[in-house]
Design a protein around this nucleic acid. Structure first.
Lengths: 123, 123
DNA sequence: TGACTGTACTAAGACATATAATACAATGAG
DNA sequence: CTCATTGTATTATATGTCTTAGTACAGTCA
């Protein structure tokens, strides 16, 4: 389900956060479905529950999940994702596109890559 | 020339690296031109020379700069930028586009944003 | 020669990360 | 109600990274 690279320089809680976000985005965890409990996921990944909690807090700040004490944590609806996340993604997109252009890649080629994802989505 | 946010969680050497990379990409520092010396830039930014050196090492690994002992550090030519950087950027691009699509943004809109940069470039 | 350059190394402190060990309130099945 | 599970909070500790400080050495060039 999730994989970790303990050698990676990135903090574990970021890897968990990005991994879960990806599972939600790809639909592997449908909106409204329950995420693994803090203790369960910590056991599966063989890490501390506090680290999982930190990843869940981050996902909740972004709007990708919400937690209910006594019940569990759940995947949120796309509509509930905060606008700050959208703005941040666009900012990152601009930076990457600008550097790719500097490296000699044509903007048509970059746009085509985005289009390919769009058509993939509608299958 | 460069600005730092000491409150930011990001390490200073990463801010310096990204800032210089941006100056090179945008053409503010043309290929072949000399970058500020380790000690000079450290003095201007009021930080330690070791921190600047670390940023320069990173830029050299990416291919955006090269250093010559006794002479200085210089902006590299785009041709010398490693292919690994290109692949890494495309990987990041895919991840961001996929998340933007999940958030409901149309791929035409994303492609148009890339096109806007492309036309900006040709002015 | 002397002033500059990049580079290397050690030591110390500040800070983030991760673990460990508890504790508490809310939930829901029995 | 009882009890296991849930999220959440707290404190303490160990480790690694980041940054500064200080020093040193070799190459470049006026």
């Amino acid at each position: 389900m999730l994989s970790l690279n303990l050698r990676d320089s990135r903090p574990i809680y970021e890897q968990v956060r990005d991994g879960l976000r990806r599972l939600i985005i790809t639909g592997a965890i449908p909106p409204g479905d329950k995420l693994p409990s803090v203790r369960t996921l910590a056991g599966q990944l063989a890490i501390n529950p506090n680290t999982i909690q930190r990843a869940y807090e981050a996902l909740e700040r972004e709007g990708y999940a919400y937690s209910v004490p006594g019940k569990g944590s759940f995947a949120a609806l796309p509509q509930d994702v905060t606008d700050k996340r959208r703005v941040e993604l666009l900012r990152q997109l601009d930076t990457i596109v600008q550097e790719l252009l500097y490296l000699g890649m044509a903007w048509e080629e970059i746009a085509a890559r985005c289009a390919a994802f769009g058509k993939e989505e509608s299958k």
